[in-house]
C-alpha cells in the first residue's frame, strides 16, 4: 500500500526529496511498482485500487493538489499498463483505505459516512 501526499518531487522548494520518494506520486508510484515486481509479483496479477483526491471549495484551482495527485497517478499507471480496478476520488471527504492481507480485499472508509469492501 502506498500513501503519498504530493504530485511531484519537482514541485517543492527542497533538495531533500530523494530521502522521501514515497511522498510524491511521480517518484513513489514507480518505486512502489518496482518493489512489487522485484518481489516476484507479475504486473498482470496486480489489482489497483486508488482512493483520495478530496478537495476544498476552490474556484481558482490553485489548491487542487489532490486532483493533480490523481492525474499523476493515472498517467504513471497507464505507462505501466496497469488498469485501475476500483477508484473512489474527489468530493469533500477524506478517505481511509486498508488492505486485508489474507483475503486480498480492500476496505474503503469514507470519513464520517460509509464503508465499502472492494
Amino acid at each position: 500500500m502506498l500513501d503519498f501526499i504530493l504530485p511531484s518531487a519537482s514541485s517543492i522548494n527542497s533538495e531533500k526529496t530523494e530521502k522521501y520518494p514515497f511522498m510524491f506520486a511521480d517518484t513513489g508510484v514507480p518505486a512502489f511498482i518496482e518493489a512489487l515486481t522485484d518481489s516476484g509479483t507479475k504486473i498482470e496479477n496486480m489489482k489497483v485500487v486508488i482512493a483520495g483526491g478530496a478537495q476544498v471549495l476552490d474556484q481558482t484551482g490553485v489548491f487542487n493538489i489532490d486532483h493533480k495527485n490523481y492525474q499523476a497517478t493515472k498517467s504513471i499507471l497507464s505507462a505501466h499498463k496497469l488498469a485501475i480496478h476500483h477508484e473512489d476520488i474527489g468530493g469533500i471527504h477524506s478517505r481511509g483505505l486498508s488492505l486485508n492481507i489474507g483475503s486480498g480485499y480492500s476496505l474503503l472508509n469514507l470519513a464520517g459516512q460509509r464503508e465499502i469492501i472492494i
Binding site: G52, A54, Q55, V56, L57, D58, T60, V62, F63, G91, I92, H93, S94, R95, G96, A111, G112, Q113
Partner: peptide, 13 residues
C-alpha cells in the same frame, strides 16, 4: 486528510 469529520473539506479557499 487530517479532518475526517462530516464537514470534511467543505471550506472555502
Amino acid at each position: 486528510g487530517m479532518s475526517t469529520g462530516v464537514d470534511g473539506l467543505a471550506y472555502r479557499f
